[in-house]
Each structure stands twice: as C-alpha cells, then as structure tokens.
Write a protein that binds this DNA or RNA. Structure first.
Lengths: 110, 110
DNA sequence: TAAGTTCATCGCAAATGTACGATTAATAAT
DNA sequence: ATTATTAATCGTACATTTGCGATGAACTTA
C-alpha cells in the first residue's frame, strides 16, 4: 500500500468492521465458519477432509480467522481444536447488524 | 490464484456472502457506504472532499462497490449520483444476519 | 530412542488489491 | 468552437493474498 504520508484516520468502529469483513471475504473461510457454527468445534484435519485444498492452505485460512479474532484454537495433543470466539463473534455480529440496520434515506435524491 | 484444476464448488450462498464481505473489507468502502446510508446519495466529488485519497482511488473503490452490487450510479450530468442498491443491500443484510444468526453449539467440545 | 501423527511455518509463484498521477470522455457553459 | 467541470480509465509501482509442496515443531506411542 502506498498511502504515502497521510495514514488515513478512520473511526475505530470502521476499521474493526472492515477487518471482520475482510476475514469473511473468502468462500473457504465462510465454509470453515459455517462448519464451526454447526459442529461447535473441529480439528484442522476435519476441514482438510471437507475442503479440497492443501493442508497448508487451510492452516493459513485458519490463521487469518484466528488473527481476525473470529476463532480460537486450543491444544488438544496431538490435535488442535478450533472453536468460534464467542466474544468477538458477538462483536462482529453487532457491528454488522448496526451497519445494515441503519435506516437508509431513500428520498431526497436529486 | 493457483487452484490448479479443481475449481472448488462452494454453495452459491457461500460465494455470495464472501463477495459481499470482500467488498466491505476495506475501511474506505465502509466509510463510503456509511456516508450513503446517511446522505442517501452523493457524488464522487463529495467523497473526494471527505476522504483524503486521490480522486482516481476513490473512483476505483466506487467501482468495486458497484461491481459487488452494493451501490448504483446514475448519470446526472456532469456529475454521477451514487446511491445504495436497495435490492442487493437487502440481500446482503439477509445473508449476514442468517450467517450470524445461527445458534452456535457451545457444548460438546471435547 | 525411534517412528508416527498432527498441524504450523517457510519459500516460492502467480494473482489481486491499493494507491498515485496522467489522460480521456462526456457534458455544460461561454 | 473553446473552455471548464466531473469522473472514469490507463499505466505503473508496490503490497497483500492465495495456493502449493517441503520442512519443522510438538507431542504420542511403540
């Protein structure tokens, strides 16, 4: 990115919503999250069986979701169990719903 | 992308949600949409005054939002008036809310 | 200790995204 | 016709994302 000097200052809320949205911006990650919503938790290996991508690629998508705060992993040797991060999930849900919830002024377009 | 031969088949719903999310995945675009929600419509020039980015860059973000279907532009010479695309906005809203609305099974993690 | 399992990380290639200035296109006003 | 205004598009540079195979780390089990 070449935002030159002027690093734009966005509202923290705006930045946060964009970060969550970006994490959701790939079908593989949506699929992973859908799976976690249904199955509560799962291991990387489970996903590798479901999604036809290399194990390393899936691991990378999981990392992005983890960095975004949407999931969390906990060691369960020799596996790692991933679950949705409830707290941030709520946060994301609220950000999206207030984003979409605003009343859009349809009139006065001239 | 090097998805080699096997183009992964995702559910249409999954693809669509990911597309919308991707379009929302940048703070500038969130800001543009917030502005459109509040002001109903606006011209490119309005945004250039609000957001400290080059006119060409903002035009590019507008294009992405348009391609994603979230906004629509209508000629209003010599300006172009952008508004939220109500139909797709509803669609996106519904996709996100059913995505986040699912009951997450918290138990049975073992 | 050695081998096996599970998953993250590294290194690479190719595609996409973000930003800019310069140019072009379309229309309005003189 | 010329000029001004508005906004899209082009060309470029650099960063990030996505994907893969190979390797490494951590822990179990034999």
């Amino acid at each position: 990115m070449k935002r030159s000097i002027k690093e734009i200052a966005y509202l923290e809320e705006t930045e946060e919503l964009a970060r969550f949205a970006k994490a959701l911006g790939h079908p593989t990650r949506i699929k992973i999250l859908n799976h976690l919503e249904n199955q509560s938790c799962c291991f990387t290996g489970d996903l590798v069986e479901i999604i036809p991508l290399a194990q390393s690629t899936i691991s990378q998508h999981l990392k992005e979701l983890k960095v975004a705060g949407l999931i969390q992993g906990e060691v369960n040797p020799p596996k790692i169990k991933y679950c949705i991060n409830q707290e941030n999930w709520e946060k994301a849900k609220n950000l999206f719903s207030s984003f979409f919830g605003k009343e859009i002024i349809k009139s006065s377009c001239k």
